[in-house]
Design a binder for these strands. Structure first.
Length: 805
RNA sequence: GCCGGGAUGGUGGAAUUGGUAGACACGCCAGUCUUAGGAACUGGUGGGGUAACACCCGUGGAGGUUCGAGUCCUCUUCCCGGUACCA
């Protein structure tokens, strides 16, 4: 029998599967599985991380299909976006040409994976028939008042020349290109994600997602409970609102601090302090976020004004400092230096009063941030922090000086981008009517193709009068089309709704198909989208739910996170480190099955790992061993009924193990047990101890168990075994529990918990305590001869432990 | 700083959830085959110890609970991911 040729075999089956439409999505199914991977960005090449995501995801899909579930497993492209635009500029190409070219290449690579993609259900977010509906969703949000324009401080990436959402700023840098983000005052479009903040937080408990992802979302939303308190200036002319999580410390508020961008800064600054203030504001305005973060020392300037602490009635100075951020709370704080580290540092530096109001630790050298018993707090002294928070907030509320307040860190989603390659924002700016939405009948607003890029990547839309010139849909007057496009995360926030029927014309998604397939049953992808895509998609789903377009409010019931694939050196793969593994070279030499098996055997799926070329050999050998075992002639020479029974028992144990492990995405242990079984059955084969019929039936079962892992190899073997139809249409094997029960058990004998001996006992005897103790005593009789047994512990079916002195 | 995850042979990793630590695989060593190399196959492989057994040590570190701890508790070191003047 010839050696296994993965290249020929894989090409052969890929063709047959395609021609026979083997993986066509069933129109309906009693039990459905919407198995989804995060669709790729058409960067030009499928990298090893894609394989690590898509291969095991397909194994899960195939496993479910064999369980009789109707499976929808689509694939498409997240095709708009900056990298394509930048690459096109760099190569002097059109963005659409570059994207189309990459999609062609990547489609070929995707086919090699051997995944059961249904290519009749693919989509591409840069196509007008798709982005028409992205625009439609924008208009729905606009109608509901949840897409709005706002003037304000935004994150600006000077290298990509566009604004960014908060979620796209990582450590003060642009998530895409790593450039330091600047702050700018601009009028931009936002989506009101904060309107859904409580649902986004609370519904996390209903989701079957990894806890760490849920925690990341919880942290990002950043809910905190406290109080809003109003402080009046001493002349009562102005009011300053502050947010605090520690109303119990209000008696210790000895000064106030407001952000440099606070609207009252100018008004509060007295003549004597004006020069210093102007200087301070000027240098603060020039700093990037990074500068601010890295500032070692607290800086600040006194305004010259005072406010009255409503609790102590004392006059306290109002300062301006960068450590108070305009974007959180009210942009002003009551500073309690005794009980807040930052306020403490500021007070020490500028020699401000420190009054301790919580007992329990000295504030001589540092702030005391814990809760405790109140002191120096008037009528509230003696209470503990917990009840004082409630009592003081109630008192503030009764005196109309404050109220309980819940604060979130999450801000609205800034979706405008000053770039060309994205979904045009369907808005027309009219001098008399303002921002007017493009009427639905005029959708899509087509993105003009074949555009030459301006200098420095300037959006061609800005220099395209034909695109901009438009009549106002309201008054018919001359007006100007919006030239910004949408963040690509808007495109990807709803794509999973369209997959079930991507050619649907009458809406963004086909309600019948959505009813059949949604929500997504399992979503498989990396953790890098925890607070980006996954949060946005939940928001859009909740919006469409609240407006009656969907009857579910969470898009992804179950989330599976694969770990990260690292280079052979254990580092994140990057061009600069030169440690990028190209999957194609392995696929072209050893086949997709070997690559899939390698990736799944490597270790726990959610932990990832580094690519080790040496260890790849193991997966390759595994494939060859299966081939050898299943396709070379079996000769029955030396029948042994004990071995036959053992083979049968091991097979059924294997079915159980592979079933349970695959279900739990524990691919590595599923494969390990299969290897173990193959080692055992190779010995049986060599000795010819089992009947030919048993052997043949065992091989058939084994091939079915392996089908989701190595789809090409198993299909070829299946055919050679004489089967006419595909192994991928077979039903998943079931195990017989009666065959799994061992008829003997190994009982361990311990002395003081240490292994000393073991014996085999008939399963019927394994739970008879007296018998086990008797047998165990025989085993270690000589060792026990001159020791005193103080206790005997018998664990039925497992062990006997003698405690001796 | 805060939140989450982790540390087991030369390497990747197993371990029925408190009951034989190191499954499976890589690598290495020896052997068979081969002109040779490779491939394939067979056996061995945590450390110490022994002629071979016996025996001792061993899951980042220090304690503890228990007849028995990789697994539970307390403290601690280091690594990874997320997040951060968030009041």
């Amino acid at each position: 029998m010839s050696k296994y040729d993965p290249i020929k075999t894989e090409a052969k089956w890929h063709k047959i599967w395609q021609e026979s439409n083997l993986y066509q999505t069933p129109p309906s199914a009693r039990s459905k599985l919407y198995n989804l991977v995060m669709f790729p960005y058409p960067s030009g090449n499928l990298h090893i991380g894609h394989w690590y995501n898509f291969g095991p995801a397909d194994t899960l899909a195939r496993y479910s299909k064999m369980h009789g579930r109707g499976v929808l497993q689509p694939i498409g492209f997240d095709a708009f976006g900056l990298p394509a635009e930048n690459a096109a500029i760099a190569r002097g190409l059109m963005a659409d040409e570059w994207t189309t070219h990459n999609i062609e290449i990547m489609t070929g690579q995707l086919n090699k994976i051997g995944a059961m993609y249904d290519w009749s259900k693919t989509l591409n977010t840069s196509q007008p028939e798709y982005y028409k509906w992205t625009q439609w969703i924008f208009l729905e949000l606009f109608k509901a008042g949840k897409a709005y324009q706002k003037d304000g401080l935004v994150n600006w990436c000077p290298s990509d020349k566009t604004v960014l959402a908060n979620e796209q700023v990582v450590n003060g840098r642009c998530e895409r290109c790593g450039a330091m983000v600047e702050r700018k005052n601009l009028k931009q479009w936002y989506f009101s994600i904060t309107d859904y903040v409580d649902e986004l937080l609370d519904d996390l408990t209903t989701l079957d997602w990894p806890e760490r992802i849920k925690d990341m979302q919880r942290n990002w939303v950043g809910k905190s409970e406290g109080a809003k308190v109003t402080f009046a200036t001493t002349d009562a002319s102005k009011k300053l609102e502050v947010y605090t999580t520690r109303p119990d410390t209000i008696f210790g508020a000895t000064f106030m601090v407001i952000a440099p961008e606070h609207p009252l800064v100018r008004e509060l600054t007295t003549k004597e302090n004006l020069t210093a203030m102007t200087e301070y504001l000027d240098q603060a305005g020039h700093k990037t976020d990074i500068d601010r973060m890295e500032a070692q020392d607290k800086t600040g300037v006194f305004t010259g004004s005072y406010a009255q602490n409503p609790a102590t009635k004392q006059n306290i100075p109002i300062w301006v400092s960068e450590y108070v951020l305009m974007g959180y709370g009210t942009g002003a704080i009551m500073a309690v230096p005794a009980h807040d580290e930052r306020d403490y540092e500021f007070a020490r530096k500028f020699d401000l009063e420190i009054v301790q109001v919580i007992d329990g630790a000295s504030v001589q050298d540092k702030a005391h941030e814990l809760t405790g018993k109140l002191i120096n707090s008037g009528d509230f002294s003696g209470m503990d922090s917990g009840s004082a928070k409630t009592a003081i907030t109630a008192w503030l509320e009764a005196s109309k000086l404050g109220k309980p307040q819940v604060q979130y860190r999450l801000r609205d989603w800034l979706i405008s981008r000053q770039r060309y390659w994205g979904t045009p924002i369907p808005i027309i700016h009219c001098d008399s009517c303002g921002a007017v939405p493009v009427p639905e009948k005029d959708l899509p607003v087509l993105l003009p193709l074949k555009q030459k890029f301006g200098k420095d990547g300037r959006s061609p839309l800005l220099d395209n009068p034909d695109y901009q010139k438009v009549k106002c849909p309201k008054c018919g007057g001359d007006s100007k089309r919006e030239t910004d496009t949408m963040d690509t995360f808007v495109d990807s926030s709803w794509y999973f709704l369209r997959y079930p029927n991507p050619s649907y014309q009458d809406g963004p998604f086909d309600p019948v198909a959505v009813k059949q397939w949604l929500p997504v049953d399992q979503y498989i992808g990396g953790a890098e989208h925890a607070v980006l895509h996954l949060l946005y998609a939940r928001f859009i789903t909740k919006f469409l739910h609240s407006t009656g377009h969907l009857d579910f409010s969470e898009p992804f019931t179950k989330l599976i996170n694969q770990g990260m694939m690292l280079g052979p050196d254990g580092n994140k793969m990057s061009k600069s480190k030169g440690n990028i593994i190209d999957p194609d070279s392995y696929v072209d030499k050893y086949g997709a099955d070997a690559v899939r098996v390698y990736l799944m055997f490597m270790g726990p799926y959610d932990e990832g790992g580094s690519w080790d070329p040496k260890r790849f050999e193991g997966a390759h050998r595994f494939i060859n061993k299966i081939w050898e075992l299943c396709t070379t002639k079996y000769i029955e020479t030396n029948l042994d009924s004990t071995v036959e029974a053992e083979l049968e028992a091991k097979l059924h144990k294997l079915i159980k193990k592979v079933t349970e492990d695959t279900q739990a995405s524990k691919f590595n242990t599923a494969i390990a047990s299969t290897m173990e079984f193959i080692n055992f059955s190779s010995n049986v084969k060599r000795a010819g101890q089992a009947s030919s019929e048993q052997w043949r039936s065992m091989v058939m079962t084994l091939v079915k168990l392996l089908a989701p892992f190595a789809p090409f190899l198993t299909e070829e073997i299946w055919e050679r075994l004489g089967n006419r139809s595909s192994v991928h249409l077979e039903a998943w094997p079931e195990y017989n529990p009666a065959l799994i029960a061992d008829n003997t058990k190994t009982i361990v004998v311990q002395l003081n918990g240490k292994l000393r001996s073991e014996f085999i006992v008939d399963s019927k005897q394994a739970f008879n305590k007296e018998e086990l103790e008797r047998l165990a005593r025989q085993q270690v009789a000589t060792m026990l001869s001159d020791s005193k047994i103080s206790k005997v512990i018998v664990v039925p079916g497992k062990l006997v432990n003698f405690v001796v002195s």
